[in-house]
Write a protein that binds this DNA or RNA. Sequence first.
DNA 1: CGTACCTTTGACGGCTGTCAAAGGAAGTGG
DNA 2: CCACTTCCTTTGACAGCCGTCAAAGGTACG
Lengths: 246, 246
Amino acid sequence: MYRKTSCIINNLGRYISLENSDKARLLNLESTPFSIEGKEAIWHVNSPVEKLYSIQSGWAYTMRDNLDGARQVVDILIPGDIIGLRDFTYKNHFTEARMITRGTLCPFTQASIVDIIKHSPSLTVALFAATARQESMITERMLISMHRSARSQIAHFIIEIYLRLNQVRTTSIDEFYLPVTQQMLGEILGISTVHINRSLIAMENDNILKKSRNSIHVTDEKKLTDEAEFNNDYLSEEMDGLSELL
Amino acid sequence: MYRKTSCIINNLGRYISLENSDKARLLNLESTPFSIEGKEAIWHVNSPVEKLYSIQSGWAYTMRDNLDGARQVVDILIPGDIIGLRDFTYKNHFTEARMITRGTLCPFTQASIVDIIKHSPSLTVALFAATARQESMITERMLISMHRSARSQIAHFIIEIYLRLNQVRTTSIDEFYLPVTQQMLGEILGISTVHINRSLIAMENDNILKKSRNSIHVTDEKKLTDEAEFNNDYLSEEMDGLSELL
DNA sequence: CGTACCTTTGACGGCTGTCAAAGGAAGTGG
DNA sequence: CCACTTCCTTTGACAGCCGTCAAAGGTACG
C-alpha cells in the first residue's frame, strides 16, 4: 500500500465509517490517477460505458446538446465527487463529460464496482448513498427550475455549491472559487445567458453578491439565503438506520 | 415457496436474468402484499425511512409542497415500479408518497435490502439499474422542462408513460388508461392548470390527442412523437457489459 | 497583439402565470 | 334515487418574466 488515501475513500467515507479492509480494497481497485486539462473530454455521447472517475482535483460537468442546438448541463462535479454513477448500469453514455478546469481523476473500471458489490456490503451501501445524493441534487434542481424566478435559482445554486464545497474542505461563503461562466450558469439552470447576466447585475445592485470570472463574493448572506429558500435536507450525509443493519 | 412470482421479481428481472436462488430470496424477503385505497398516503414528509414498496397494481406518486404553497409531483409510479428507491439511504423522507388509484403494494424492509446487498450481487446490480432508470426519468424531465414548450412537455410525458406501461404489459397507444388529472399533470410538469388545459385543447383541435378524465386517446401518433422529440435511450433496460461481469 | 471567449446592453415579442368565476362530473349521505 | 358537496375542467382578461436577436465592449490567452 503505497498511499494512505485515495479520492474515492474520501467520498464513500462520508456516508459510513470504513473498515480498514474496505479502505484496502478501494486502494487496490483504484487505477493510477491521471491529470487532465481544462475543457478536455472525459467521455463522449453514446460512447460505451467503461469507467467511473473520482475527482481528486478540478471541476467537471456532464452535458448534452438539445435538438434545438442549446447545450444543457446535467451535473456540476467538484473535487470528491464521482463521475458516472448515473451511467454505470447503462450500455452507453447519453451525456458527454468534460473538465471545467484542469485536474486529476482516479478511474475505476466497471469490474471494480462489481468487485465492491460482490465483496463489501458497506461500500455498496455507500455507493447507493452517493448515487442517491446525486439524484437528489437533480431532483431539487428540477423542482426549483419549475417554480422559481431566475434570481432565486441563481441564489439556490450558489448556496448549494458552497455547501458542497464545504463538505469537502472548509470554504468561506464570503468569497470562494467558482469557475463557472455566466453562459454555463445559464446552461445549468436553463436560463438564457442574457437573463443570467441581468439577474446577476440586479443582485449586485442589491448588494447581495458579486460574481467575477472565476469566483464569487457574497456580500449579504442573509439576503442570499432568503432568496434561495434553501432546504438542505437533500444534501444530508446522514444515513442512520441503514448503517446499523450492516 | 407458496407463490411463483412477486412484484419485485418482475421489476428487477427486467435488467438481468434472475437465478432461481435470487427469485427464492426475493419471495422470502417480500412481506405480505396489502391493498391500499386511492389517495391514501404511503408515507409522510419527514417520516423516518423504513421500507420500500413494489407496486403490484395501482398508480402512485411522490410529491412535496413548495414554500409558496404549490404542490409539486416528483415521480409518477406505475405497476411494477419500486417506491422509495431514492429515499432508502436517507434518514427521513423528504417527499410524501400517495396512491393515485386503489392498488396493492408489496413492502420490503430496509433490512431486506441490506440482505440483498450482502448476498446477491446480481440483485444488487439490478437495484442499481432500477435506481438509475428512475433518476434518468427525473433528469430527462428536468432538461425538458427547462427548454421545451408546454405542448412539447405534455407530448413527451404521454409518450414516456405509454412506453413505461408498454414495458410492463402490452398497451395500445391509441387509447390507454391514464388516471392523471390536468391539475396533477400541471404539478408534474411545473405548468399551471390553466395552461395545461389550454394546451390540451389546442392539441385536441390539432387532432393529436384527446384527454378524458381517466384515459387518453392518441389520434395522431406521428404528430405526437414529432412534438415530443422523444429520445428513449434513457428508458433502455439494456445493461450489456455489466451483467457479464457478475 | 490578434483571436477567441465572455460579459453587457437595448429593443421587442410571446409564452405562460395569476386571478376570478362558471360549468361539469363524480362521489357521498340521507 | 335525489340533494349536496367536492373536485375537476374551462374561459376571459391581463400582466410580466424571460427568450431572442444583434451588436459592442472586456478579458484572457497564445
